[in-house]
């Protein structure tokens, strides 16, 4: 195993976060805090409780998940796209690194950033809303698992994209709408029966539901199903990444 290689790639990717501290950390923390202020502190006080949880506290897991999905995808897709765009990818491809080591470097760094951000936003939320975490280990597990899964997804998008527009399309046109409609701001039990059924085809529902369960012990779907669906999505992403390296798709002609 090329331990020095993984470390170099991982630290180099993380250093980008420190270089762009405002864009990487301050910007998502500020924008998520605005949600807490508007929906949690201001409007939330006039909303009724959902499943025995105050509205302000109810939306915390959903908002963190919304940020986690977008940041994981953005970090990982940008991380692999930029070397492709600038041509510096030659160095990674010509280095004695296996595909697994390359993915660990890029995806590991992107997931690390997302998890750190998630924790930071969780701490920030405390300034505006009271909340509890019934299952902290599960909460952390879901945070890490989702960050890794969506960083892998972002890696795939970064490899696929051949322009900045494509890089933005999937997070903007697919992930954000799915997160908003996946129960970030409401319980899917509040929807009419037909929409409840349709919503179950949205994979983000399972992520948010599982994550919310780790906070308050209440969920739209069973925790086992949430975990299972997250693992299924992780497996699909891993399979696609394997195919990318196997075929050299858009990386190695």
């Amino acid at each position: 195993m090329n331990g020095y290689g993984i470390r170099a790639l991982y630290l180099s990717e993380l250093s980008r976060m420190w270089r762009t501290l405002f864009q990487s950390i301050a910007s998502p923390v500020i924008s998520t805090s605005l949600y807490f202020i508007v929906f949690g502190a201001a409007i939330g006080s006039r909303m009724q409780e959902i499943d025995g949880v105050s509205y302000g506290a109810f939306i915390i897991p959903g908002l963190i998940m919304l940020m986690l999905l977008n940041e994981s995808i953005s970090n990982a897709s940008f991380g692999i796209y930029m070397p492709k765009f600038t041509g510096t990818i030659y160095e990674v491809l010509s280095a004695p690194l296996s595909p697994v080591e390359i993915v660990v470097g890029y995806v590991g760094a992107a997931a690390t950033k997302s998890v750190l951000l998630g924790i930071l936003i969780l701490l920030t939320a405390r300034l505006f809303v009271d909340y509890e975490i019934l299952h902290p280990i599960w909460m952390f597990g879901f945070l890490v698992l989702t960050a890794i899964t969506f960083s892998l997804f972002g890696f795939i998008i970064g490899v696929w994209a051949d322009g900045f527009e494509k890089l933005q399309i999937v997070p903007m046109m697919i992930v954000t709408p799915l997160a908003f409609l996946g129960g970030s701001f409401y319980s899917i039990n509040m929807l009419p029966p037909m929409w409840q059924t349709i919503t179950l085809f949205n994979p983000v529902v399972y992520l948010i539901s599982g994550f919310r369960w780790s906070f308050y012990g209440v969920a739209d779907v069973h925790i086992g199903v949430s975990l299972g669906m997250t693992l299924v999505f992780l497996t699909i992403c891993l399979a696609i990444v394997w195919i990318i390296f196997r075929t050299g798709y858009k990386l190695k002609p």
């Binding site: 090329n2 331990g3 020095y4 290689g5 470390r7 170099a8 790639l9 180099s12 250093s15 980008r16 270089r19 070397p83 600038t86 041509g87 510096t88 030659y90 160095e91 990674v92 010509s94 280095a95 004695p96 690194l97």
Partner: peptide, 30 residues
Amino acid sequence: IGLVPQELTSNMFDSVLATVNLSRGLFGKA
């Protein structure tokens, strides 16, 4: 193998020392 590519491709925001250290690390050297 060491390769000097034709194009001037390097992470423009990195310092000289950082990018050279990165290269050594990528090739598995302490």
